[in-house]
Simulated assay, not measured.
Amino acid sequence: MKRIYLIIALTFGLVHFASAQADQQVTLGTTHNYNVTAVAGYTYTWTVDAAGTNTDVSAVTGNTISVDWNQAVGVYNITVYATDATNCISETETIKVEVLGQSSVLFAAADDAQTCSDLDGNIFGGGASGGSSSFQVKFTGGLAPYDLVYRVLDATDTQVGSDVTVNGLNATDQVDVPNQFINDGTTDAVYKVVIVSATTKDGAAVALPADDADKTRTITVLPKPRITGGIKF
């Protein structure tokens, strides 16, 4: 019998713990919409914990609200109840929203890359790094997954190609840059991979490092080997 009591107690504890968790996570500074199913003749009364937002919903009587989570990190309640045409009221519905801190991103490791030159026609030219150079990135804060935009610059800081967007990155992840570089010279050619911007899942801008070294990595492209004199016969 004691074991049964213990199982019941543990089960209640787990249910209670789960019920205390947030129903939704958002990033500080983002705006989100909330609604209940509209019923004809009902008016709705909404409340939102003021510590998390300066949005005033006291005048809203419809079934939808928009909340700007812009005050402070924490867990906050959104509550709503309905009033019908006879002034009877419903039970309240409440959800918990966890506001996460603003996010930042940087290259997480000193992983500058080296690769062989591709051959004419962008045919892969071999080398230890394979068809792409991989760079570790780390996001802190905000709602995952994240989208990141990078660009490639040559030795004169001229952009090579268009900006590239990588979607669905985790807090710790890697970005793979295709090694589509041709070096017809006799010395190494160095390209920069630069983080341009990033956003959280709910659209908040991710802060970039103030130090260029934390948002820049290099790819060194070795000179293309050449056979001179052709095949003799």
Rank of each mutant, 00 (worst) to 15 (best):
R3P: 05
R3A: 15
L6C: 09
I7N: 03
I8F: 12
F12G: 09
T27D: 06
L28A: 09
N33A: 15
N35S: 15
N35I: 01
T37M: 13
A40F: 12
Y42S: 10
T43L: 11
T45A: 14
W46E: 10
T47V: 12
A50Q: 14
G52N: 11
G52P: 10
T55H: 09
T55R: 10
G62P: 11
N63F: 11
V67K: 05
W69F: 13
N70G: 11
V73H: 05
V75W: 01
T79A: 11
C88S: 15
S90D: 08
T94F: 03
T94P: 04
I95T: 05
I95Q: 01
I95G: 03
E98L: 08
E98W: 00
Q102R: 12
S103M: 05
S103A: 15
S104P: 01
S104I: 04
A113I: 02
C116V: 01
C116Y: 12
S117L: 04
S117Y: 02
D118P: 00
D120G: 05
G126A: 05
A128P: 05
S133R: 02
S133F: 05
S134M: 07
G141S: 03
G141R: 04
P145H: 02
V149S: 13
Y150A: 13
L153I: 07
L153C: 05
T156Y: 06
Q159C: 11
V160S: 11
V166N: 04
D173H: 03
V175R: 07
D176W: 02
P178F: 03
F181C: 01
F181I: 03
G185T: 03
T186L: 11
V190Q: 01
V193P: 08
V193K: 08
V193W: 08
I195H: 11
S197L: 13
A198K: 10
D202R: 10
D202K: 11
A204R: 09
L208H: 06
D214H: 00
T216E: 03
V221P: 00
V221S: 00
R226P: 00
I227C: 06
T228N: 07
I231L: 14
I231A: 13
I231Q: 10
F233Q: 13
